[in-house]
Write a protein that binds this DNA or RNA. Structure first.
Lengths: 338, 338
DNA sequence: ACAGGAATTTAAAACGATTTGGATCGTACA
DNA sequence: TGTACGATCCAAATCGTTTTAAATTCCTGT
């Protein structure tokens, strides 16, 4: 059913009907109500593509998905939750991991194709080309994470630095002196922030920083396992691990067991938990101490902020830094006697 | 840059330019080439919303994402891989798990809003209301999984029945007689198929089916753990587990260890693996025997089939059943002596 | 040189909404 | 009574393409 036909059935002009449905003020309350009711009864819905053409809005937010990111679904779920009351879709484009050229091209296509009103950038670097590109192309965008890139941009991030500082500090409080950090991919801002938090905790006690106790890599069980194994094989092995993700922690647990040690007794573990419904720190054996921040909530909020950005709120106003909880469970305990 | 302006610069009519770019035959090769080159040079790209309005195509495929599905990202990645050469987007809508009413409403909105050209249905039931609804609404759709719903529909599925039959058979070959099955959510076709495969393997040996050895539930580590624990606490405990997913298997491993037994020795485990880059069966300790089928490949193929469906291939022609590999690793071994 | 037909090209009509700039209707006030 | 003004409503222009139907150009064979 088209607007013209629907309007005729109501005995009104298309103009009035359109206005009534879009909430413009120059239509009487009585008419608006009647239009709304009849629209439901007759099942009239504006053709979305016509609306998009004439308004110039795309009605969608673009997100670029790396190939190996298990976190992505959770984030998107959050976005979608917030968006489903609006008439805004989520458009997903995939890109091969660590292929910056392909990724830039993709963003460029996305921005110029008019398919999306805004895009979201994940895992930025301190100096991120994508941010420069999108700024230059003039499309609204939001950064999930932080960057030092020298153009104004909106961002939302969690306090990675504080999270890891506190986790490390807590392990130090428990008497651990050799603490290994299995961090994220090198060069990304959040990885750097976590490195920084780790060092700060050491510095606060006047303890030296040993680069042999830190590794970088993707958040997979395999990397968690390998890193932990190689740490445990060092002559002076660490007594505690700070792991970058739940998947990493799985690998760490395995590595610890594989050398005949016990998590929570011989080796303490704290991991960062993005809160997944299908893999919970509480259910691990022993239950896993975590720094926790809901990725789903971040997705929802980021969607919200994106809507604000689209409707004109200046990007320079949009900066949110979320605190991270530290939740202690059984995987952390006092350092064993040396 | 608009078509009109671009055409004027070329000294051609909009019609010819449009045709040249869309590959219609009634334009000379020389002109086509010139138009294509100039389009790149001047950066002309048709306004996507205008195209969509006039052609009536939405240029997007809709997928509905349940909240707790970690598999989803992997599937979507596959779809996206196939789609990124086409001018077709993926539109993601979330829905609360197990809320069929909300889900039906969502599909209905999706189908009538004109935002998508086709939708994909996941995890169907033998008698699936969504299939009936979409058929009634007349929008093209593809089912990932199978259904006995009595309307013609396209589908792609893996051979769940055969996979679990073979896994169970193999455990029987190894001498196991009490084999527990930790299956998926009750009522879904793939769950029923897996149940069936399990029973068939038993029947083939003339062994009785014991319903106390089968549980149903979501694919989470928690459910894996709880189910396995309760099995292991039975007076006559099973010596082998067939687990529905990698997450489930994580829980099973934990449960086995928590009662002081050893996977691969006291207890054999086979799980179904959808092939995730961040959690691999090979890296588990002991490495996990799996029935394996790439979810990413399924996503890519399903995207492909969806394109075919949209361009007119009859749904009744589109039926694919994929075989599942059985990969034996260290988690399976001969049954311990009774 | 010219008819006939194929190969190109084009003008103009969709597609289905929003929005601009007026029109109409009542009501209140001088 | 006439005017001004606010409250409603409407006709027509517009968004940027594709596509239909018709016009033009270019060959080819006689």
């Amino acid at each position: 059913m088209k607007l013209k036909e629907f309007a005729k059935q109501l005995g009104l002009s298309p103009t009035t009907v359109s206005r009534a449905l879009s909430g413009y003020p120059e239509v009487s309350e009585k008419t608006r109500k009647r239009v709304a009711e009849e629209a439901v009864r007759l099942g009239y819905r504006p053709n979305i593509n016509a609306v998009r053409l004439v308004t110039g809005r795309a009605g969608a937010i673009g997100v670029v998905m790396g190939r190996n990111e298990f976190q992505f679904c959770e984030f998107m779920s959050g976005m979608a939750e917030r968006l489903d009351s609006e008439d805004i879709d989520i458009l997903v484009s995939p890109v091969a991991d660590q292929d910056m050229k392909a990724e830039l091209q993709l963003y460029s296509r996305l921005a110029t194709s008019g398919r999306v009103d805004a895009v979201i950038i994940h895992s930025p670097k301190p100096n991120d080309e994508r941010i420069l590109l999108l700024h230059k192309l003039g499309i609204p965008f939001l950064v999930h994470g932080r960057s030092e890139t020298n153009v104004p941009h909106a961002w939302l991030d969690i306090d990675n630095e504080g999270a890891i500082r506190r986790a490390t500090s807590h392990l130090l409080d428990l008497g651990h002196r050799r603490i290994a950090l299995i961090n994220g991919r090198d060069g990304l801002t959040f990885t750097l922030h976590r490195d920084k938090g780790y060092r700060e905790a050491l510095e606060q006690r006047g303890l030296p920083f040993d680069p042999r106790l830190v590794t970088h890599g993707q958040f997979t069980d395999e990397i968690g396992f390998r890193s932990a194994r190689s740490f445990l094989e060092q002559s002076l092995r660490p007594t505690a691990f700070v792991a970058g993700s739940m998947m990493t922690a799985l690998g760490v647990y395995r590595a610890v067991r594989s050398v005949g040690l016990v998590v929570g007794q011989d080796i303490s573990v704290i991991a960062h938990d993005d809160v997944f419904p299908y893999l919970t720190a509480d259910n691990m054996v022993p239950s896993l101490s975590t720094s926790r921040s809901s990725l789903r909530a971040a997705g929802a909020r980021l969607a919200d902020l994106t809507l604000q950005l689209i409707t004109g709120r200046p990007a320079t106003e949009i900066h949110e830094l979320w605190p991270v909880e530290l939740i202690l469970r059984e995987s952390t305990g006092p350092a064993p006697d040396a």
